[in-house]
């Protein structure tokens, strides 16, 4: 078992004829992902990375039974590409693109409340169910099959933690990078809820960072609704207020919301141990198993 993606997921790559889209389509296929089509306006009829390209996502969904997409479309067109995936309709859309205008995401967010599609991202590394399927740019070789779920706002921090787990022989059910933007599709709570329902996931790692209140909401959800143990990590303890740290969403506001202390306290109150170092997170996971 896993969440959101597995062997049966049939993937269309939006933007497959671009440099990144092409490279990562090939990487995904090499990993074993069922990439069945590409979708690029005006490029219908071509073959790229060994799969047929269609002009629209809807055509790819109908002709190739695609049920998920990975979006490698430049920021100016990414909002439109996400709408196309939602309206196709697909079950899952993963938006890798960094730099999507916030007001575009507000409109997407509104539509998400009206449809059943899960959106992951934007500005995220994607999702992987080790040994089965990866949708995105995660380096497949560091992941291993197992029983720990992982959800994180950051790509490379995910790799750091996964690497520690894998080296201890602790594999993963699914790892999902939800992205560092202020407005995103799948939230911590959404991912935690899916992991809680997954029979094979025996523990979950949640890597948050400063900014916003998603981690606090996640803590509340864990306290009220989860039996599966969660190990936490929060990046940005040393970030000064008012300074954005890389991610568009990673900022402690001038009035002091979004601090690491507030998130760590909320998680601790919900019974979640928060590691001081990535290694400590792995220690905490090990103690759960």
């Amino acid at each position: 078992m896993s969440i959101l993606v597995d062997d049966d997921t049939r993937v269309v790559v939006q933007g497959i004829t671009g440099g990144e889209g092409n490279f990562h389509a090939e990487q995904m296929i090499e990993y074993g992902t069922n990439v069945v089509a590409g979708a690029v306006p005006g490029k219908g009829g071509q073959t790229t990375a060994g799969v047929p390209v269609y002009d629209t996502v809807e055509e790819a969904a109908i002709e190739e039974n695609a049920d998920a997409s990975v979006i490698f479309v430049p920021p100016a067109f990414a909002g439109d590409a996400i709408f196309e995936a939602l309206d196709a309709p697909l079950d899952l859309a993963v938006a890798i693109t960094e730099g999507v205008p916030t007001q575009d995401m507000a409109k997407v967010n509104k539509r998400l409340s009206e449809v059943d599609t899960h959106l992951i991202g934007p500005n995220c590394p994607g999702i992987i169910t080790p040994g089965e399927s990866k949708l995105g740019i995660l380096p497949g070789n560091i992941f291993s099959e197992g029983n720990v779920g992982l959800v994180s706002r950051s790509g490379t921090l995910t790799y750091q933690v996964v690497d520690s787990l894998t080296q201890r022989g602790i594999g993963q059910t699914t790892a999902v990078g939800i992205g560092g933007d202020p407005i995103i599709g799948t939230s911590f709570v959404d991912a935690l809820e899916l992991f809680e329902q997954d029979d094979e996931t025996e523990a979950v790692v949640m890597c948050g960072e400063i900014g916003g209140e998603d981690e606090e909401e996640a803590a509340k959800f864990i306290g009220e609704h989860m039996d599966t143990p969660v190990a936490g990590f929060i990046a940005g303890r040393t970030a000064p207020p008012g300074k954005r740290m890389g991610h568009a969403g990673a900022i402690v506001s001038g009035s002091g919301t979004g601090t690491a202390e507030s998130k760590i306290e909320a998680l601790n109150d919900a019974g979640v141990p928060v590691g001081d170092t990535p290694e400590e997170v792995a220690d905490n996971v090990e103690s759960f198993l």
Binding site: S154, T238, G246, H247, D276
Partner: peptide, 17 residues
């Protein structure tokens, strides 16, 4: 110096730690 916002923030935090 590092790559990825979350990991660089973590590196800052570790320096402090």
């Amino acid at each position: 110096i590092g790559n990825g916002a979350g990991l660089v923030m973590t590196t800052l935090d570790l320096v402090d730690y």
